[in-house]
Design a protein around this nucleic acid. Structure first.
Length: 715
RNA sequence: GCGCGGUUAGCUCAGUUGGUAGAGCGCGUCAUUUACACUGACGAUGCCGGGGGUUCGAGCCCUCCACCGCGCACCA
């Protein structure tokens, strides 16, 4: 009879979890180099680097759970298993977080010298890193801390620089003076992905512009408008010739306008005539480019009108709008105002400020040539998307991809290693910091003060973090097997990793993409500080145990679908953990030990006893268990963790406990298989509930090894 | 406008290849010298969004429609 005092009380997770994690860490088995046995095939997951700017949130909890399940399963299945953790400097995101800290102290980033600001944010992220990492450990994550990377590590930055240079040399990166999306609050440009659309109802103004009526939602940009554009086939305006000059009275006095004919004009819309503001509108910019027209800046970087606006100069655009309409009314230049115009506006995804397009010199990455091979790879099914419909979503985006602005006007990030000619504006990568004069025009150059879009570096993470190009790790673990991350960042991150990974290494960085949904609150609402419904995963682990949180996040949560996380659900799985605990007590107190050297026959999935020695009724139980093992293994291999977990839950509770244990109370023969079935069950449950299974494993007789490196039943 | 999801028990959601609907919570009844009250046993609750079709058979496949959510593109 096996006595164990610990088992006499209910399972108390907090009593065991830290100790068990310590045991795992000390074993060295998180590091694939230390794993026991012959392991030919490798299995690698690169952890999405956590932003080093705050705490673990519920979404991280899900990442850590799903990835750890895959990792533990494959480790037990005998693979050389690596899970590489990391932190992301998260350029703009972190800068925004830090700016809020500054605001609380009554400071502003615009008053701090860049070098000092950089140092402050550096210290801030380093503190957060250790904090985040300890939280990752709380989730039971069996990642290899000896290989932990940071996106600002010297070798990572070096890799990013070399990629930049190679892209430039291959004519895939260019410096262009083009229209970009500019946030007047954050004072930086963005790529198209950082912009959100919002439908709004605004006024639509019909203004008299010489002989024409033009329509606009943004009269405050119209000060400098001197081109009036119409469709070449528009019969109403056939008498006006392309290039014709027209003198007319405008906002601040008489001007000379030029007629431009362009086929992009929609004859059905408004009056079929518009004026253009190339500096502050993407469509207008394109028209101006096509016809080689002048472009003039009207609004400054902070969203205020420039001297061209005359008496309105210095005003914020919203303020100027009403005032200039008043003036136009007095000048009798307002035809009519439609109060009910529905249209979309572009907003900064972070602060919801109205995006103010500006023309700026920036570095752009040509995306078409990078996207083409990925489109082909997806069509050839070389990338498995889980769930499948992300394949279509990806293809749609890749087929319509536009060039990527990778310059950001922020301090926190990887500085762009380039020189800019002060005369001709040309830009040149300069990794060794040697260029002083422009290779094109010979004039003086200055250092580019911008930093990379953070996704430019994280897009290289799979190969960069493995030490591309010469390390053993890169050779052993690249390409990785699966990228598991949030569906939300499929374009931001996943698509770009595919493109940059294939471009640089010649191989896709991963063969499968597993995308999880959002973690919502119990009522299915998105978590946000303003709604005060943010769930801290660590509060839940301390209350219900990490195992309960993990399995609650998995069961009923299909990939790609959002998960409503309720405490009731956690309570249920805390009960399940306790159930396992009590099963352990019963088995240890009642089941005879297995004869020495008796193991699962891995080849045939039969016990070496032969079912005869268990009797007919036990044969049924063994076969039932065999079927479960095969079923669950299939689910694990095909990323159906939600099904595997649910099947195990039901087997343990409603077959093993309710039927087999109950029968064993009256049937001595059934008692003989309890230990055997329980031991194998613990292995199956371990990826989902690593702490309690490891703890119980250590109490079983004849279990010297850690459960985390035991062999999976089919292996 | 184009595209992608979703609609299943009161709530949150599963249902992998078509074979008479499942889980958790909640609800009801019973059980306390029981491995387990952080419990167990038993139970109730569904025109599987609507119409049409394929099939011996449809929650699942096809088609149309409605509603909800999301993405992309946008015309001033």
């Amino acid at each position: 009879m096996h006595e164990n005092e610990e088992l006499k009380k209910p399972y108390n997770p907090t009593e065991h979890e830290d100790l068990i994690y310590k045991k795992w860490e000390e074993s060295g088995f998180f590091n694939p180099d230390n794993l026991p046995g012959e392991r030919g095939e490798s299995f690698t997951i690169i952890m999405p680097p956590t932003n080093a700017n705050g705490n673990l949130h519920a979404g991280h909890g899900l990442v850590m759970t799903i990835e750890d399940i895959m990792i533990r399963f494959n480790r037990m299945a005998g693979k050389k298993t690596l899970w590489l953790p990391g932190n992301d400097h998260a350029g703009f995101e972190t800068q925004v977080v830090y700016e809020k800290e500054l605001e609380k102290m009554g400071r502003s980033r615009f008053d701090i010298p860049p070098k000092k600001l950089y140092k402050e944010i550096w210290d801030f992220t380093q503190n957060n890193r250790s904090n985040i990492n300890s939280q990752v450990k709380k989730m039971g994550s069996s990642c290899d801390w000896s290989r932990e990377k940071f996106t600002l590590d010297e070798d990572i930055v070096k890799t990013v620089y070399q990629t930049f240079k190679k892209l430039f040399d291959d004519d895939l990166i260019y410096r262009g003076k083009r229209i970009i999306s500019w946030c007047p609050k954050h004072q930086t440009s963005f790529s198209d992905l950082e912009i959100i659309d919002e439908e709004r109802i605004d006024k639509f103004y019909y203004l008299k512009y010489g002989p024409f009526i033009i329509g606009t939602t943004r009269p405050e940009t119209k000060f400098g408008d001197k081109y009036v554009v119409m469709h070449p086939n528009d019969k109403r305006y056939a008498s006006y010739k392309d290039g014709q000059k027209i003198d007319l009275e405008w906002i601040n006095g008489p001007i000379t306008a030029t007629v431009v004919k362009d086929e992009s004009i929609d004859m059905e819309f408004g009056t079929g005539v518009m004026t253009i503001t190339p500096w502050h509108d993407a469509v207008d910019f394109e028209i101006a480019e096509r016809h080689n027209l002048d472009k003039e800046q009207i609004i400054d970087e902070r969203g205020r009108l420039l001297p061209i606006a005359g008496e309105f100069a210095g005003m914020k655009i919203t303020e100027a709008r009403e005032k200039m309409i008043e003036k136009l009314k007095l000048k009798n230049l307002v035809e009519k105002i439609d109060d009910n115009y529905k249209h979309n506006v572009k907003l900064c995804y972070k602060c919801n400020s109205l995006i103010e397009p500006q023309i700026k010199s920036q570095w752009f990455l040509k995306m078409r040539p990078l996207a083409e091979p990925i489109i082909k790879a997806i069509e050839k099914k070389e990338i498995k998307y889980i769930p499948e419909h992300y394949e279509k979503i990806s293809l749609h985006w890749l087929n319509n991809i536009i060039d990527w602005n990778i310059s950001r006007q922020i301090t926190w990030g990887i500085p762009i290693p380039a020189k800019i000619c002060e005369k001709c504006g040309g830009g040149f990568p300069d990794l060794e910091n040697k260029i002083e004069t422009c290779p094109k025009c010979g004039k003086k150059t200055r250092t580019d003060g911008d930093t990379f879009d953070t996704w430019f570096s994280s897009g290289q993470w799979p190969f960069a973090s493995l030490g591309y190009p010469n390390s053993n790790d890169f050779k052993t673990f690249y390409p990785t097997q699966v990228m598991e991350t949030a569906g939300e960042i499929i374009f931001f991150w996943v698509a770009r990793m595919l493109m940059l990974g294939l471009y640089i290494t010649g191989k896709l960085p991963f063969n499968a993409v597993y995308l999880h949904g959002l973690v919502l609150d119990a009522k299915g609402r998105k978590m946000s500080k303003s709604k005060n419904n943010v769930i801290n995963p660590l509060d839940l682990t301390s209350k219900y145990g990490t195992d309960a949180l993990r399995i609650a996040m998995v069961i009923g949560n299909t990939p790609g679908t959002s998960l409503a996380l309720s405490e009731d659900k956690l309570k249920a799985y805390k009960h399940f953990a306790n159930k396992i605990w009590n099963i352990a007590r019963f088995v240890l107190e009642n089941a005879p030990e297995l004869p020495k050297g008796v193991f699962w026959d891995r080849g045939s999935l039969k016990t070496p006893f032969g079912s005869d020695s268990f009797g007919e009724e036990n044969k049924k139980y063994i076969e039932e268990f065999n079927a479960l093992v095969i079923d669950v293994t299939g689910d694990m291999e095909n990323y159906r963790f939600y099904l595997a977990a649910e099947k195990l839950y039901h087997y343990t509770w409603h077959t093993f406990a309710d039927i087999i244990i109950e029968e064993s109370k009256t049937n001595e023969n059934t008692k003989k298989i309890l230990m055997f079935l329980f031991r194998e069950q613990l292995k199956l449950l371990h990826p989902f509930m690593p702490f309690i299974t490891e703890k119980i494993w250590s109490m079983l007789p004849d279990t010297k090894n850690l459960l985390m490196v035991e062999k999976w039943p089919t292996n």
